[in-house]
Design a protein around this nucleic acid. Structure first.
Lengths: 335, 335
DNA sequence: CTGTTAGCGCGTTCAG
DNA sequence: CTGAACGCGCTAACAG
């Protein structure tokens, strides 16, 4: 344990502890000469202020918590990239927690944060439309909270999302414009709001432009089951367009098409909410509605740091930042 | 700021601070009755011990740092899953840091950790064969370190890796057994040790089994450039087998084959180091050597917690855990 | 079984 | 310009 603290610096330099402390914080009441000496020794010994001590004293830790459902997921990986870029610039540390979509875990972790472990929290909810009292409690304890992607309307924290409704409309119109006469919508998590919002975009786009009837296919989290559901639907209904609400469904759909010899995009056109990474691996590559994941991370982190630093709680309450998604066509795709 | 602390609990219950503290820690010298009362109130008020205070006092934070090159990468995502599983069970927090392969960033972050911010560090190195003095300094300060995946031989910390050499041999033999007469090896990062080790496996397997000459293709980080390099090689050399040292190269290779009408696996067979996620998206799906990423995370975290809890520094010094990779063939692949 | 006290390292008052 | 002293919240040693 050769850890260096202020005391040792003081002894070494024949100064008092408080002088050293002040010098390190570049206080105006310390002579340039003394400061120079202190800085030199601090650097030489790699002095690092004890974060527990300063956290205890000043009630700030330069740490923010990031609570997300999971990590093995390109979307959240990209979001984290954005968060990290912003926070790193300002010297913040990142405490991560993965809820695996488990509400109980989210609650217990958030409760754990009540007492000065972090300066703020970035959260994408594990489930929605639930009891949010743990989050209310958190903000009541003076810890700022910013929600992103999976947010809840009955919380007046700052929110950052992408334009799920508008982009679902865009995606559906894209299929219509490409000549599709019967467009199926592949749906999961029908009870989470982001799912509903996307579906509404699909429904409204259909209604607005043509006489098409909606064809909504409820899928599950079980890949095998979903495969069969989709296969059955394709055979029986013979749609010529597919709009997948999440990437995984599009991938399964590709597999089904292979099996039953439907050629993409000639026989059937597919579009999906998805990120960039995996979409271009498919053949032909998948046209997607891509959320600005990195930007979302950046935006959420910036909002949070604003609240933390400027304490402008009142100004930004109930603010909702909405980022624009992109329709992405890739080479070798012609839909 | 309505944060609850021990003092408030004590006042509310007409007990002394230390009695409450002991009750919360379930000390044997507190009556069952008192404990019950304390627990009840603590739960009611959602009392959470201030981590800065206990960290300052006891020199432990229940936090470990995870330092990795990047996040947008299935391999590290999976590793983190393993780390998280183990640490969550024991109530540890995870502080993340991404070096983006930048050695300077790694150094500055590690230095920051010298003074009681975390109880231990899990690290996958940003670069290798460099000056490791920052890591030595860290362990000298009494903070345990476990290296995984990208490790350095001139550090006597515990290391966890997968069997890169053996699995490269296996992969090469697999192509040979499948009848390949001319196998090319796609290489990047020739100067990092993990790259060298894999290449040696390829070279030795070739030498051991047949009269084949090695065909090593140096690729860059530039996708466009690499695409052209591989295309040129395929046209000029006409190999019937490809061993890609990283997944991205295999993907590019697929694209090149499409362009110049080489059918996989009939004309050319491809195998690659890769994880599971993206490999099955390709068509035909890619046969891979898959590192046990999740297991690696688990193993590394377990080793670290062992050191932290048992303080068995001496016993585990210079230990090297090597996990076995898996050769994975997937449906619709016939090589 | 319970209360009193001291100190972890730092930053900020209050004195010079 | 510098030093002494206090307290952030918690735990452990020392009483009783």
């Amino acid at each position: 344990m050769s850890k260096v603290n202020i005391k040792q610096l003081a002894k070494e330099l024949n100064l008092s502890i408080s002088t050293v402390s002040r010098a390190l914080r570049d206080s105006y009441e310390i002579s340039a000469d003394t400061k120079k000496k202190v800085f030199a020794l601090a650097k030489q010994l790699n002095y690092q202020p004890n974060p527990n001590a300063s956290g205890l004293r000043g009630q700030k830790t330069k740490t923010i918590a990031v609570v997300i459902p999971e990590m093995v997921n390109d979307f959240f990986s990209l979001v984290i990239g954005g968060i990290e870029k912003v926070t790193q610039e300002q010297g913040y540390y990142l405490l991560f927690y993965f809820t695996h979509g488990d509400y109980e875990l989210e609650v217990s972790f958030i409760n754990t944060l009540a007492n000065g472990r972090v300066d703020g929290v970035l959260l994408s909810m594990s489930r929605e439309n639930n009891d949010n009292s743990h989050l209310l409690e958190l903000t009541k304890n003076g810890i700022p909270l910013v929600l992103f992607d999976r947010v809840s309307d009955n919380l007046d924290s700052v929110k950052v999302t992408s334009d799920n409704y508008e982009s679902a409309v865009t995606a559906t119109r894209h299929l219509i414009d490409a000549g599709c006469k019967k467009i199926a919508y592949l749906q999961v998590h029908k009870n989470i709001s982001i799912g509903k919002i996307r579906m509404n975009g699909y429904l409204d786009a259909l209604q607005g432009s043509t006489q098409q009837h909606p064809l909504i296919v409820e899928c599950s989290n079980e890949n095998e089951e979903t495969f069969e559901t989709i296969e059955k639907m394709l055979v029986e209904e013979r749609p010529d367009g597919i709009f997948a609400s999440v990437e995984k469904l599009a991938v399964i759909c590709y597999r089904v098409c292979e099996k039953i010899n439907l050629r993409i995009p000639r026989d059937i056109k597919i579009i999906s909410f998805s990120n960039l990474q995996t979409a271009s691996l498919l053949n032909p590559s998948l046209t997607t509605i891509t959320q600005p994941a990195f930007d979302m991370g950046e935006a959420a982190a910036k909002e949070l740091l604003n609240i933390i630093n400027k304490k402008s709680k009142s100004a930004s309450k109930d603010k909702h930042v909405i980022l624009k998604s992109l329709l992405m066509k890739r080479k070798s795709t012609s839909i």
